[in-house]
Nucleic acid binder design. Structure first.
Lengths: 218, 218
DNA sequence: CGGAACGTTGACTGTCATCAATCTCTGTGG
DNA sequence: CCACAGAGATTGATGACAGTCAACGTTCCG
């Protein structure tokens, strides 16, 4: 199943349906009664989401941040898959554990970092996930709108814009076109975030290689 | 295995060991380089924690908030348990999903609520989990120190103290002894939190009853 | 009794949110 | 091809809320 940017992915009646991200990027978005929005989680390729992970808030929904390809796996299919092959089952549970770990790290980021550190952490995360190294530095596409980034980092969109402007003024990030960023010197950026090491462990190439193992199996 | 209050529970070398909470309350605590602390998660009885859920931060550790009884389950035992009985396996995955859901709700709380709303949400959570109703209202023990509560809610301890004082001044909570609170009128408290409904869904009696099912099986 | 850890309170500071105005992109239709 | 509209992004002025630092209270322990 394909999803266009900004398309919502219905969380079906099936309370334990699994959604597997093939390509693209999904966000788990909620909205509180008084229209405060929050993005709880980013789902990268190979991530697994189950409807029952969603918090019981009225407005919780998955949405595609960019064009994405996803698989919907009915709950019983998921269970039988996991049970049929112990090796696959172990991979699934490792994948889910990694996602828990990421979620916990994100709590730490939102809970104890200031605005600039959060933004830096987010940029590092993107660079690790979807960045490509070139002679000029690390460049990557920014797959979320300013509003979505702000919601993800628990910042105000205006505040986020200010922080980005400051980073640009300092030459830490360069914005070539809308939606595309270049980090000339990765080290400087890494020094801005106190959780760089953890981000590398969870989003860096080691994590990806482990995950490719996964794809091979599937 | 028993743990005294404030005792740390080592996260063993075994990267996928499971810890099962029988009684008491555990906290998942981290500390950033510059000694900013953060409690990422509360683990209530029947919760499952796996070492691999912990974020890769140097200071991440489980600690008992009150006297607790826990089981350590080696990773292979855990897997075989989950696979041996499909019914048990389903229960385990439901339990883990519920914990994900709680973690996500906590992100929403920290990310979009102000101080007073966070404290109110926390009190509601405690009341639902460990509160007992009496003619005077709902009373419960406060199982965390002020510092730990502050770290859990991503607030400063001083700020938390101020908020609590304000709630006491308004008569919304009454503190009989240190470590014990009484909420005369639950409705007033519930109105202070925008996520009351979600808290009830995840911590209320319905959730507990489902969980008892679990104990019966184990 | 005395000390240490924990909690409370006040004065002050800094960061982030709010509101409003302006600017920049993107896509549409004349 | 240009003009226009509308969403998204930026920026400034201002204010509210939470953090910091320091002093003082309280509780619990030996």
């Amino acid at each position: 199943m394909r999803a266009r940017p900004n398309q919502k992915i219905a969380l079906e009646a099936d309370p334990a349906e699994a959604i597997f991200v093939r390509t693209g990027l999904l966000v788990l978005r909620t909205e509180l009664p008084d229209k405060r929005r929050q993005i709880l989680n980013l789902l990268y390729p190979r991530d697994i989401f189950r409807t029952s992970f969603s918090p019981p808030l009225p407005e919780a929904a998955l949405a595609a941040a960019v064009a994405s390809e996803i698989w919907r796996v009915p709950s019983n299919t998921f269970e039988t898959l996991a049970n049929s092959d112990p090796c696959l089952g172990a991979l699934l549970s490792r994948q889910l554990a990694a996602q828990q770990s990421r979620a916990n790290l994100h709590v730490a980021a939102i809970g104890s970092l200031n605005g600039e550190e959060r933004v830096a952490s987010f940029l590092i995360e993107l660079a690790l996930r979807i960045g490509s190294t070139s002679p000029d530095g690390i460049s990557f596409q920014i797959p979320l709108s300013r509003n979505d980034i702000a919601d993800y980092l628990a910042l105000n969109a205006d505040t986020l814009s200010r922080i980005m402007s400051r980073l640009k003024a300092r030459g830490i990030v360069v914005q070539k076109t809308r939606g595309r960023a270049l980090v000339p010197d990765g080290k400087v950026l890494r020094d801005l975030s106190p959780i760089t090491d953890a981000l590398v462990a969870l989003h860096g190439s080691a994590a990806s290689i482990q995950a490719q193992h996964f794809s091979a199996l599937a």
